[in-house]
């Protein structure tokens, strides 16, 4: 697991840390069940605040990519499709970046998304596998 963060980047540090883990899960460098280093260790290692790292880890948990358990630390989720989920989260971020570049408002962007969702049939067999 390689973490790279730059304080000069406009992206918040916590987001940068989350992006490192997300990328590693997406390209298979971090496998399901792999234990991530403790937030305290990452913070000490990178020279950033421990809350910054925790913010990044919490973001990943909200995306369903890692599990945070007291005492066990952060573990890449063993649920099927972790790599696909990570790629999806990366894709969404790329879309948002494009929307921002075009100057779309949040509402305009969400309307686009809703429109796309509405015309795409949800496959019946995916309903059971919902996470």
């Amino acid at each position: 697991m390689l973490f790279r963060v730059s304080p000069r980047s406009p992206v918040p540090l916590g987001e940068q840390i989350a992006a490192c883990v997300r990328g590693a899960i997406a390209d298979g460098a971090a496998l399901p069940g792999e234990r991530l280093p403790a937030a305290r260790e990452v913070a000490e290692s990178l020279g950033v605040n421990v809350h910054t790292v925790l913010r990044g880890y919490q973001r990943l948990r909200d995306e369903g990519l890692i599990e945070l358990r007291r005492g066990r630390g952060a573990v890449v989720t063993a649920a099927p499709g972790a790599a696909k989920r990570a790629r999806l989260a990366e894709g969404v971020r790329a879309l948002v970046a494009d929307a921002r570049e075009l100057g779309l408002t949040d509402e305009e962007f969400l309307a686009l998304l809703r429109g796309a969702l509405a015309v795409t049939e949800r496959p019946a067999d995916a309903r059971g596998a919902e996470l």
Binding site: M1, L2, F3, R4, V5, S6, P7, R8, E34, R35, P37, E41, V42, S45, L46, G47, V48
Partner: peptide, 13 residues
């Protein structure tokens, strides 16, 4: 190649 000011850390169990 590390950018100036960039922090990097690699860790593996």
């Amino acid at each position: 190649a590390l950018a100036e000011g960039e922090s990097a850390s690699w860790s593996r169990t």
